[in-house]
Amino acid sequence: MHAELLKLKTYPLFWISMVLFAGFIPLLFGFFLRADFQIEDQQMDLLQFLAPNASSLWQYLIFVASYGVYILILFLLSYTNRDLINGIWRQYIIEGVSRNQLVGGRIIIGAAVSLLAMFLLFVMGVYTIAQKEYSGIVSSLWELQAFFAGFGLYLFGFMMMALLLNAIVNSTTLSFLGIFFWSLFVEGIVRWVDPTTLSHYLPVYNFNRLIPNPVSALVGGGSLSATPEVQHVLVSLIWIGAFMGLLYGVYRKKDF
């Protein structure tokens, strides 16, 4: 892990993706912070219309930040493929590092990046909410702690899925497009064919339900619960476990 950290420190895309992720939230919220609209001669602030309190604003923040997962996936894939293309994993194996240690190291980086993203979301969220002078910023997040943890699991799940796909196709571009294709088309088709049973056990369907979706709640007129459903957490954990197990299996047999 020490050698891995030294290597990570010198990898520009790591720092770029972290800055991008940290900048992503204020950038999107900058739009909301400035936007206002008029209804019957009454000037309304868009953000306060959508999120009247700090708790609902956190829900929007987590939801919006979840799209930053693609930045993190891109970093992890390119970091892994840089090592593979330059024969670094091959050299590490020659040096006596086992395949399990290599895969384990990459899983730890995925988990660490998820935690770092959660921290960045917290810092940028507090900053963004403070700009609008909401009250109870931290206590409102405490109410949503399960969704906040779900956000970390969501990032980690997507990254494990991307790593597994990359272990099979060995390409950053193909793996990245594969995640899109799977999320938008494959699961979409399955949900269209079977909207009730099978589709409820698909990975992306369950990952998406680990985070709040205030937009659909707003459109549907319903209210959001404060925690993700246990069923989605369990299915997501099973999928993440399966992705990790398969990742070990693929690399155990792979020639470098």
Partner: peptide, 26 residues
């Protein structure tokens, strides 16, 4: 075992000394 297989495997943009230091850690 210390081994050199086919071609040396190092990161292209990283400096020689830093590469060796990483290997020394490993």
């Amino acid at each position: 075992v210390g081994a050199l297989l086919e071609k040396p495997n190092f990161l292209p943009k990283t400096k020689v000394k830093a590469q060796l230091e990483m290997m020394a850690v490993l």
